[in-house]
Design a protein around this nucleic acid. Structure first.
Length: 591
RNA sequence: GCGUCCGUAGCUCAGUUGGAUAGAGCGCCGGACUUCGAAUCCGUAGGUCGCAGGUUCGAAUCCUGCCGGGCGUACCA
């Protein structure tokens, strides 16, 4: 699409220059204005448009008059691409004939398949992306699901733009909060295990974290006991470490079961328990070089006055580390393991301050690549009923939600009486649930808080993941039918795809949309924003839906027209698949 | 208080980086299946883009100030 735009730009520039000359104006003044070719608000107004307001001053003519003159000039030019130019008010509107581009992109799609849409805009760039980062004291919740969706999708988008991407997780497996569930287990478990109780292991651990909090309400020294346990842990106390290992394994195993359900995978996993000591060393190093200072009680601090912030603790008076300390160590460990050009942290907006401090402290330590760290911040997920509050038990558990969505999908398949057709009922239901979840979460710009409405997400009509899957399934079904009716593979050799036949307005728009896909992938990468893909995908589906509804494809009237429409449908299907892969929507042949 | 993000239709969200009459979905009301999957499609109604200034030929978009909200501002993570 871009290349078409560029060809038009060149012609426009030439026409403007010759117009300037005819008015005895030096064409170089045209360089001073930025002309942006845009897409008109309505398809009837053409494919591209150029507003001429900025030129009014230069030419001392009204935009309307300029439009008229330029249109005439352009239409007379030999190098004009297939199409026509019309002056409409102060706008220059271009109507493009896309049939040659359609034939070109058809070959390209056949050639590249699942790689169609990929760009080279980030070729070779090494990007590490951190996301998810669960605590090992409780199971994943809805907030993690948004985090995972953004992380997985952003990684896929970067890869599609040629970057070498390494997805990493950081397991938050140490700290005072972990000690709390350990303490409660020691007190209340009576030796119970996930196996003995039949409870999913991360939920099992989470239950003790809840127990600690209720218990702590009536026991003032509870917090202190947890802190003491942390000191024991950092001193490598054998019993403490043993319990810690046991409970962590339970938590992590359970959490990874959930990842398997949502399709979340990592290239590498870091553990804070392994990197925190490096963090400690870094702090000592900073102490020596006097970028940090020690208080009388032994705690270590950094003063951030130079960036307009307050003072911050890096090591507690009892010598134990904090979240920030660990993150210092993790960052350095990562850069040693895999020297990245860029490290993206997908972490909630509530931690903006944390990252400001983290990046600043790393710079203070003289780490040059600190400039290449980026906090991809996203907003909170709320429910239609209001905020999620762990104290009130209104946090949406990830496993529960997935289970609910899957069950709703299963019932819907049965309701539609399609269980025989889909063959794998449970697998299909799970795939639909995943589509519902990822698409809903990736519709809202990351920066914004959002409201997650489970019922709405799984709805089968409207702007939802399942709707998109349905589009893919219908096209697939139709193409299967074409193949059985016409013995498609044989037909393919004897009929030539003639895009000239596709002259319906809907076909024109569909071709345009297909041509646009690589630009969209590039934009999503540049902005680190997967929602760009979602919006594009819905528009493509909507266009095709209407087309499919209003026009016969398999019985288009002639073999060659049918074939042309089938080829267009195949192109749309391939783009659907490719876009699905970028935002975590499983493709289904049948549903 | 300070920092930061946000405020668009009844609800949930887009808005191509400053351009044409601000768009979708849901919900409401009304239409379309002897036709490739109706899990669909089409139409009607619904807006002071939080408010007030400013910059500009032109502002939902940029600037300033208010109002309203979220999140930070821990020897929590």
């Amino acid at each position: 699409m871009n290349s078409i735009k560029k060809r038009w730009e060149a012609v426009i520039a030439k026409a403007l220059a010759s117009y300037a000359e005819s008015l005895e104006i030096n064409p170089s003044v045209l360089d001073t204005v930025q002309l942006v070719i845009q897409v008109p608000p309505k398809p009837e107004l053409g494919d591209f448009a150029l507003p001429l307001f900025p030129l009014a001053k230069i030419f001392r003519k009204s935009p309307q008059e300029i439009a008229g003159k330029i249109a005439v000039l352009m239409n007379e030019m030999e190098e004009i691409p297939a199409g026509a130019v019309l002056a409409e008010g102060p706008y220059l509107n271009m109507y493009v004939n896309l049939s040659r581009d359609a034939e070109r992109v058809c070959k390209e799609i056949a050639d590249k398949g699942s790689r169609y849409g990929c760009s080279r805009s980030m070729e070779g760039e090494k990007v590490m992306i951190e996301f998810s980062c669960p605590n090992t004291n409780k199971p994943l919740h809805l907030g993690h699901l948004r985090n995972d969706s953004i992380g997985m999708s952003t990684a896929a988008v970067l890869e599609a733009n040629g970057a070498v991407v390494r997805k990493v997780n950081l397991i938050n497996d140490r700290g005072v909060h972990i000690c709390k569930s350990m303490l409660a287990y020691e007190k209340f478990s009576d030796g119970a295990t996930p196996q003995s109780t039949g409870i999913k292991s991360d939920h099992f651990v989470g239950n003790y974290y809840v127990k600690f909090n209720t218990w702590a309400k009536e026991h003032k020294d509870a917090e202190k006991s947890a802190q003491e346990l942390l000191v024991k842990w950092e001193q490598n106390d054998e019993e403490t470490v043993k319990l810690w290992s046991l409970m962590n394994k339970w938590a992590i195993d359970g959490i990874f079961e959930t990842y398997a359900r949502t399709g979340v995978i990592f290239d590498d996993i870091y553990y804070e328990s392994k990197t925190y000591t490096l963090g400690k060393e870094l702090v000592y190093r900073g102490l020596e070089s006097q970028v940090f200072y020690r208080e009388e009680d032994g705690s270590v601090w950094v003063d951030m006055e130079e960036i307009g912030l307050d003072k911050k603790v890096l090591l507690r008076s009892d010598g134990t580390t904090l979240y920030l300390t660990q993150d210092l160590g993790t960052a350095v460990a990562r850069h040693e393991d895999w020297p990245f050009d860029k490290l993206i942290y997908v972490v909630g907006s509530e931690q903006q301050y944390h990252f400001k401090v983290l990046f600043h402290v790393l710079r203070k330590l003289g780490i040059t690549w600190a400039e290449n760290l980026y906090h991809l911040s996203y907003g909170m997920v709320n429910l239609p009923e209001g905020k999620m509050k762990s104290r009130e038990g209104t946090v949406v558990d990830a496993d529960d939600l997935i289970k609910t969505l899957t069950e709703l999908a299963r019932l819907e398949i049965i309701e539609k009486n399609r269980q025989d057709e889909v063959e794998d009922l449970d697998g299909t239901a799970a795939a639909i649930a995943q589509a519902a979840l990822n698409y809903y979460l990736l519709q809202v710009s990351p920066a914004k808080d959002m409201i997650f409405n489970p019922a709405e997400s799984i709805a089968f009509n409207g702007n939802t993941g399942p709707y998109l899957q349905y589009m893919g399934a219908r096209i697939s079904s139709m193409l299967r039918k074409y193949d059985t009716l016409h013995d498609g593979s044989q037909k393919r050799d004897s009929i030539v795809f003639n895009a000239e036949l596709l002259n319906l307005q809907e076909e024109h728009q569909l071709i345009k949309q297909v041509l646009l896909f690589p630009d969209v992938v590039e934009q999503a990468g540049k902005e680190l924003n997967p929602t760009v893909i979602s919006a594009y995908l819905y528009e493509l589906s909507r266009l095709y839906s209407k087309y499919y509804h209003d026009h016969q494809i398999l019985r288009a009237g002639s073999d060659s027209l049918t074939f042309a429409r089938v080829v267009l449908s195949e192109m749309v299907l391939q783009v659907l698949k490719n876009a699905f892969a970028l935002i975590g929507i499983p493709f289904l042949e049948k549903m």
